[in-house]
Amino acid sequence: MIPWSLETVSYAGAIGLVVIGGLGLVICNHLFRMLLALAMAESGANLLLVLTGFRDGAIAPIIGYGPAGAPLVDPLPQVLVLTAIVIGVGVQALAVAVLVRVYRSYGTLDMRDLRRRMEGEIAAAAGIAAPGSAQAPLGQRPLPPVPDYELVRRSAPVRERGA
């Protein structure tokens, strides 16, 4: 038995899962596929976490299980990973819920399409013209108009003498 092979392979596999998940998130445009990629990355991370408690030849850390004095694997990562899994599942469930409602409203799960629509809606709500209609160029006016308060009121008597 080659001790490094199992551990190394496991670690590499875990990290590989994370990497594959990350790449999947970037490459995919479909929201559900992205979600799957996320799940994969999470599995990788969880695997990595639980691997940290691994000891070669050790047994599960349950009281009264196995011979006394036998090496136990570190129990803490297992606890942690349980928590992490629960969190992950929660987030994914939330994501699926939102995803379903998005699909119902827009009829698509294509990321680019949805993003465009979101931008359009934000702009419409704010009353902004669609991007691309450039602002009018700053025209060089021949003369700036005199502000209104400097203007003569025609109704007032012109030959006034103010003190």
Partner: peptide
């Protein structure tokens, strides 16, 4: 034609 001199305060 009918413009007056600037007011005294100015």
């Amino acid at each position: 034609q009918e413009v007056a001199e600037a007011p005294l305060s100015m």
